[in-house]
Amino acid sequence: MRHKFISKRYWKDKSTPMGAVDELAKKYENVIDLSLGDPDQNTDEGIIRFAFQEAIKGHTKYTDFRGDPELRDEIKKFYKEDHKVDILDEEIMVSTSACLGMYLVLESILDIGDEVIIHAPYFTPYYQQIELANGVPVELETLEEEEFQINIEKLEQTINERTRAIIINSPNNPTGAVFSLDTLNKIADIAIKYDLLIIADEIYGAYTFKDDFISMISMHKIRDRLIILNSFSKDYVMTGWRIGNIIAPKEIISTCQLVNENVVFTAPSVSQRAAIYALRNRKSIQPPLIKLYKERVLYSYKRINNISWMSVPEPKGTFYLYINIKKTGLSSEEISKIILDKAKVLTIPGNSFGTCGEGYIRIACTVGISELEKAFDRIAKIKL
Rank of each mutant, 00 (worst) to 15 (best):
D22C: 11
D22T: 15
D22I: 15
L24A: 13
L24F: 13
A25D: 07
A25E: 04
A25K: 12
A25C: 08
K26G: 08
K27A: 11
E29I: 11
N30W: 12
V31G: 05
V31Y: 10
L34E: 10
S35R: 13
S35Q: 15
S35P: 13
S35K: 14
P39R: 09
Q41Y: 13
N42W: 15
T43A: 06
D44V: 06
D44W: 08
D44Y: 09
E45L: 15
G46W: 05
G46C: 08
I47S: 07
I47C: 07
I48N: 09
I48A: 10
I48R: 12
R49Y: 11
F50A: 07
A51C: 05
A51E: 03
A51D: 03
F52Q: 15
F52A: 15
F52T: 12
F52W: 12
Q53W: 11
E54S: 15
A55Y: 07
A55D: 04
I56D: 09
I56Y: 09
K57W: 05
H59Y: 14
H59N: 12
T60V: 13
T60G: 07
K61Y: 08
K61C: 06
K61W: 05
K61T: 09
Y62C: 12
D64P: 08
D64E: 13
D64F: 11
D64L: 08
F65K: 04
F65C: 02
R66D: 04
G67I: 00
G67K: 00
G67A: 06
G67E: 00
D68Q: 03
E70K: 14
L71R: 03
L71K: 10
R72M: 06
R72W: 03
R72C: 06
R72I: 13
R72A: 08
D73V: 14
I75E: 00
I75M: 04
K76N: 05
K76M: 14
K77S: 14
F78G: 05
F78D: 03
Y79Q: 07
K80Y: 10
E81I: 12
E81Q: 12
E81K: 14
D82T: 11
H83M: 09
H83Q: 04
H83R: 06
V85T: 15
V85E: 11
D86S: 12
I87L: 11
L88K: 14
L88A: 13
D89H: 04
D89W: 05
E90Q: 10
I92D: 02
I92L: 06
I92K: 03
M93I: 10
M93L: 08
M93C: 00
M93K: 02
M93A: 03
V94G: 01
V94W: 01
T96R: 12
S97W: 03
A98N: 11
C99R: 13
L100Q: 01
G101H: 00
M102L: 09
M102F: 02
M102P: 00
Y103M: 03
Y103W: 06
L104K: 00
V105Y: 02
L106A: 01
L106T: 04
E107N: 08
S108E: 01
S108C: 01
S108I: 02
L110H: 01
L110F: 01
I112N: 11
I112W: 11
I112K: 14
I112L: 14
G113R: 06
E115C: 12
E115D: 13
E115Y: 09
V116F: 02
V116E: 09
V116R: 03
I118G: 05
I118V: 14
H119Y: 11
H119E: 11
